[in-house]
């Protein structure tokens, strides 16, 4: 094959299945020029047959379950699936609703999970490059994050008294605290990055790092014990 100097094209097909639209808009934003320092060109596929990467947002309800199944059947065999945002990964804050039929990994094997609520456009691009081009996996320059930005949690074990207050206050039940074993873990696939746990912790054992690249290939790997001493 002749050397192609132009950028490699990646065809993405986006399926919106009853999320809040936040991740869909961030996906749209990630196609903007502002984020254009990447070695590939994103093309939006209009038909499932063209999909190279299928991006799923939302937790799938009973109304669109069949449509999603149909669409997935039309996509080519070798396509990869990415679940975007915590409702795409686990149902997130909508977990427990009577109209919850998903999430997508009940139907298909997901190749990449990108946590966030909403996901950061930069995280989408980094995860995409990791997925389609793992050899020369490329990272966007560190974006300028505001000092308030809430990424993956820091958890300071030396401060934590394992009282469980964070777990009780979490709006999407993402934290597990084991008082006996002195274990603390957060499910980044469920977390809304809302900041409530940081607020209620009596000993300031939680803060937020600016790590937005939390994507993982396995669902289980999204459980995080929290970073430690990561600077803000």
């Amino acid at each position: 094959m002749p050397e192609d100097t132009s950028k490699r094209e990646v065809w993405i097909y986006h399926i919106n299945t009853s999320g809040c639209n936040g991740c869909d808009i961030e996906l749209l934003a990630s196609i903007l020029e502002k984020y254009d320092s990447r070695p590939f060109d994103i093309k939006v596929a209009n038909y499932p047959e063209e999909a190279e990467v299928v991006m799923i947002t939302g937790h799938i309800n009973w109304n669109n379950m069949n449509a999603v199944k149909e669409e997935m059947n039309k996509t080519p065999k070798h396509r990869k699936i990415m679940a975007l945002g915590n409702c795409g990964i686990s149902g997130g804050v909508f977990k427990g609703s009577y109209n919850e039929a998903g999430p997508i990994d009940k139907l298909e094997e997901v190749d990449m999970y990108i946590p966030g609520c909403p996901v950061k456009p930069e995280a989408i691009l980094n995860a995409l490059s990791e997925l389609v081009d793992p050899e020369n996996s490329f990272k966007l320059r560190e974006p300028k994050l505001s000092e308030n930005y809430r990424g993956e949690h820091n958890h300071y074990q030396e401060k934590c008294i394992y009282c469980g207050e964070c777990a009780r206050s979490c709006p999407s039940n993402a934290i597990k605290v084991d008082r006996e074993k002195k274990e603390w873990a957060v499910d980044l696939g469920k977390c809304l990055f809302c900041g409530r746990c940081e607020e209620v912790c009596p000993t300031d054992a939680i803060s937020f790092s600016n790590n937005f690249d939390m994507y993982k290939k396995e669902r289980e790997a999204l459980w995080s014990k929290g970073k430690n001493n990561e600077s803000k």
Partner: peptide, 24 residues
């Protein structure tokens, strides 16, 4: 097609958790 049952979910959330659900 986008129905998520938020009004019902809201009945399960205490007030401190409610705004996080509603803003979504």
């Amino acid at each position: 097609y986008n129905h998520r049952g938020i009004e019902k979910l809201a009945e399960m959330k205490t007030y401190d958790k409610l705004p996080y659900l509603i803003e979504r």
